[in-house]
Amino acid sequence: MIRMSHLYKTYLKTWPALKDINVTINDREFLFLTGPSGAGKTTFLKLIYGEERPTRGELYVLGKRVRKMSHRQRALLRQKIGVVFQDFKLILTKTVYENMALAANVVGLSPSVAHKRILEALSDLHMSHKIKTPVYQLSGGEQQRTAIARALVTSPRLLLADEPTGNLDPSLSSTIMDLLKQINAQGTTVIMATHDYHLVGRYPFRTIEIDGGRIRD
């Protein structure tokens, strides 16, 4: 699914964010990416969904070489990846439905299929009653569930979650984790970045720890 080989990412030519990363992530795997703040977790995820390009080394995502991809190729790759952020990245002025419809339209789903998928995703996440609510009226937990629902509406093969529980209280964090587990059980590869070691300890998934831009053995 994902292969990183001697991968380096340096910002402003002098600030190394990731150094010599060698990782293979298998299909249908649930992977925790841990490490302190500023360790390079977000950069790791950004490289996978193509927001950043590797400075050196090789990176293959869903069988595609990311390094020399054009903007269009990266966009097409992203259509197969769902991304969930700590700050949700939702369009606040649009409703829950409109946010999800945008993602569905980008990947070219017909309105009827998109509608069906949106209803299913919202039902799975217990958000059906908020379908017409503008995002700015939602609580943090609801916004995070909307962000996950948006990521799922396109049926991605890979779900990246960058500190999805970072802004949530412990009970909501558990709910979100259960959701991600459920998504993984349905066949989606999940990579979740978090610095919450207690949360990581509660689940039996493979963990990669990044510190100072390197993977800690």
Partner: peptide, 16 residues
Amino acid sequence: RDEIEIMEIVGGTKLY
């Protein structure tokens, strides 16, 4: 700008 960024994240091409 945030809206444009979000459209990029969900896989919108430049033309889209």
